[in-house]
Design a protein around this nucleic acid. Sequence first.
RNA 1: GGCGCGGUAGCUCAGUUGGUUAGAGCGAUCGACUCAUAAUCGAUAGGUCGGGAGUUCAAGUCUCCCCCACGCCA
Length: 570
Amino acid sequence: MQRHLITSAIPYINGIKHLGNLIGSQLPADLYARYQRARGNEVLFLCATDEHGTPAELAAAKAGKPVAEYCAEMHAIQAEIAKGFGLSFDHFGRSSSPQNHALTQHFAGRLADADLIHEVSEQQVYSNADGRYLPDRYIEGTCPNCGYDKARGDQCENCTKQLDPTDLIEPRSAISGSTDLEVRNTKHLYLRQSALKDDLDAWINSKTDWPLLTTSIAKKWLHDGDGLQDRGITRDLDWGIPVRRGDAEWPGMEGKVFYVWFDAPIEYIACAGEWADANGHADWECWWRTDKGADDVRYTQFMGKDNVPFHTLSFPATLLGSGEPWKMVDHLKSFNYLNYDGGQFSTSQGRGVFMDQALAILPADYWRWWLLSNCPETSDSEFTWELFQQGVNKDLADVLGNFVSRVTKFCRSKFGETVPAGTSYGSREQALIEDLDARIARYVATMEAMEVRKSAQELRAIWVAGNEYLQACAPWTTIKENPDAAAMQIRMGLNLIALYGTLSAPFIPDASAKMLMAMGVEDAEWPSDMARTLTQLSPEHPFTVPENLFTKITGEDTERWKEQFSGTRE
RNA sequence: GGCGCGGUAGCUCAGUUGGUUAGAGCGAUCGACUCAUAAUCGAUAGGUCGGGAGUUCAAGUCUCCCCCACGCCA
């Protein structure tokens, strides 16, 4: 039995994520986790909300709530929606957890001991009216590059130029609007990533089987220009993990917190601690410390391409720099972007379909199937309502749903609601068994390789094989001449439904559960021997005719949704 | 401006280390079937693989130049 540690990039707390976020990490991670569990492997699948930083504070202020309260509420909402999509996290944690506080401070202490952290004096804008520093998005003003008058301290949303707060023309506080600002000197901690450049380079170069997208981004950051740059890991904010050196105070750092990018990936580890505490497991380090049992763990991370630098460089720098035997990622699967109807999905602009809206109009399986079978693996991919309608109707309703329907209804009307006996399997059935053995071997190979689109194609081909079989043996004709042969053919059909229920579960868990329940299969085993699997439902075994598994999406539906989602949210 | 990923049938995409007549699904057309969610199954049509030059016995697949789209950075 293998042990799989699987993490999905942790979504930011300030609002509900859109379908692009979903397919960019959480959904493929869930596919892989469900598949590995189905294969009988031990899986720890972790995700969390990323709760610190300026956007969380601003969103809380906008909602008129204390930031801690806001985050707790948003976490609960995101957790509920994740459940709605069937995301099978073993734990959905929070980067604001006490476990992450302790661990983040621990890492900072270790890094400081290793002389990998240094102090830098820099200029920051202080607001006299607000009585605080104004980092990043807390300050607004006119962009020196394009003249946009609502540019933020970290970036101009209009021309996308990266800015420093001191660059802004006519700066003002984003909190109070006050222009009573002054520039002060303040000290911040920097992680000396540059000192770890060679270690990181060697580590990346050892990953020869990683996607090109992943390694090329990492190598670019390592070698471009002056090479890997040191990064500030502290901020002048109230909301965050207080800067401490392990258990000790950090002189000169009073009132400061760690910057969100530093503590967020550490939450992958802390989340295991949260999981252990929540479930009464004493031992979470067996998943994360190679000196405590994690040396046989295979660790896979899933994320969108924008997250690759943090996962290939910054977080590994934290782990390597600590000098402790932490488990490093074995495989990093990254994704491109899903576009919405010719443009981008956008959280800040409210453009596209958001997770709660998606669940309000259709069940999770519809989205899971379409998103996974069209997931942006090799390049950006496109969501349009027409493509969505086409894919769902053809694949789910016509190929799979209708197969279940035609087999079960034919059986009920001709033989009743128990599996008919009939003759033994003949040469046509033998050929089907061999064909399915080969197809499932390919399905397994692509799933192991995390080739999501190809896996979906193989699975679909397995569904089609059922229709081909049925069409070829035509039990509705056979029954007139040879009822026993027709009974056998339908027995095969029912067994195929049970097989599909097992194989399809990673993609469409709800429909799969319905198939298995209708066939009266209690605990489905992954098929290793097709001849045995396709006789698991023996004569006399009772079954039920399920409701149609999938309802088709109509042209009126897509017209309505296109209209409904054409504007921006809120 | 620099860098990155792409540009393959109407649409969405596969094409391993260069090697027989370039593949799949959808859509289209025709046919079969009638158990089923007007579903299914089969067949056919459709591409000078963005453009040009080069290397090679042989290039969608390697090299160079150019064009286009997207992204990141300055």
